[in-house]
Amino acid sequence: MTTSVLLAGGGTAGHVSPLLALADCLRRRNPAMTVTVLGTAEGLEARLVPAHGYELRTVPKVPLPRRPGPDLVRLPGRLRGAVRAAADAVQQSGADVVVGFGGYVAAPAYLAARRRGVPIVVHEQNPLPGVANRLGARLTRFVATTFPDTKLAHSVHTGMPLRHQISSLASLTVDERAARQMSARAALGLDRDRTTLLVTGGSLGAQRLNETFGAAAADLRAAGVQVLHVSGTGKQVDVEPAVDGQAPYVVLPYADRMDEAYLAADLVVCRAGANTVCELATVGLPAAYVPLPIGNGEQRLNAEPVVAAGGGLLVDDVGCTPDWVRQVLLPLLADPTSLHAMGEAATRFVVPDADERLADLVLSAAGSRS
């Protein structure tokens, strides 16, 4: 009998990336396995899931309010429609297990699975669990966390499932990495031999990073540092085109091949989403983390273990200014010994086989139904 798995998650790369990593791992184990994804029509998953060869079924986007207000009053009606759509997906896919990654899609999926008696697996990416996964953890004994100190009932620490194209970079030899770095830089329109800074605000971009590094572009070029800047879809960075002899400043709205971006870089400046933190630690890249200044502070908590181990810097959003680039970042970029030591320290944070650990939990859950 072939196992059928329904994976629920979407909105941003923080949910979609680990979902796809698990999907790929399950398919590697058993190419005949049925893997279906439940997401929204508006999120990143609408493009990435079909592009990776998986069927996408959609539910209405239903944000779960964190505090009382009009959205909370409207929640029951919205949630009923989403649960009906999720229940249809559970039935039509013949799911033996439903795996949720939090966010808008997960809560309807958990409730639909519970009603139909389908086992549930929860994966929580952040140190502070979100509303959907706190709900899901009450409905199952199969709960996985990225961080060891996350407080959820029945949880086991599996780490963050990463796409194979990212996790495989950790096993490259020094010579293999150097060769691939040169080819990645060339493919991205960068010089092969210049010190390279990667700036990324994630799939949605980060206005603070876009403004700061646009303003500091001349200083970076004057220091001979080239930049690959992932601005976010629909967002711009105002940078003058390079003239002959200047260090390139390449702006991309989105990077489908983050493995190439990571290979090209010597240092990264980024937000501190859990997926980003885990990917950089796995690859062994030092980073300056600029946590998103809204929400409940989970991005700072994501980065703190790596920073405490010596694998990066923490910078408040308001402190990420052109002056900070000049006074802190440029001296660090000019110190390859420190960059190497930071990268080595970051790798101590990694759970290298997180996708396999989570796949084991998913198959155990599926087997519990019989």
Rank of each mutant, 00 (worst) to 15 (best):
A345Q: 07
P331T: 04
S203P: 02
P336Q: 10
L228T: 02
A113I: 09
G367K: 08
P161G: 11
E55Y: 07
L198K: 01
S171P: 11
D175E: 15
A107L: 13
R185E: 09
A247I: 09
A95D: 04
Y289P: 00
V73G: 08
Q226D: 09
L139H: 12
L204G: 06
E260V: 09
Y54P: 06
R114I: 06
C278D: 09
A41K: 10
V318R: 14
P119M: 06
G9N: 05
A274M: 07
Q236F: 12
R67A: 14
P241C: 11
D24P: 01
T58G: 04
A107H: 03
V143G: 01
I166H: 12
V156A: 15
R369G: 12
G312V: 04
K61F: 12
S155H: 13
P108F: 05
G234R: 11
V318Q: 14
V49D: 02
G94L: 10
G69C: 09
H15Y: 05
L75H: 04
N302C: 09
Q92S: 15
L209R: 00
C270M: 01
S155K: 14
R271M: 06
L20Q: 01
D256N: 14
V351L: 10
A107F: 01
Q246A: 14
A186R: 14
S168T: 14
D360L: 09
I294Y: 13
L252Y: 01
E176C: 09
A215L: 12
V49A: 08
D353L: 07
S167N: 09
Q299G: 03
A32E: 15
R208H: 05
G81S: 11
D360S: 11
G14V: 04
A89D: 05
V237F: 05
L48M: 13
A264S: 12
R27N: 05
V250R: 14
T2Y: 05
L197N: 00
D323E: 15
R141D: 14
V290A: 05
Q125R: 06
V105A: 04
A82F: 01
R115P: 01
A281S: 13
A89F: 07
V62E: 03
R257A: 14
V230Q: 13
L333K: 00
G14E: 06
F147T: 07
R208D: 04
A112H: 02
V251D: 08
A21Q: 03
G343Y: 00
R57H: 10
Y54K: 08
G94R: 09
V121D: 01
T321E: 10
P293H: 11
A265L: 05
Y254M: 08
L292K: 04
A87W: 02
L152P: 06
L7D: 03
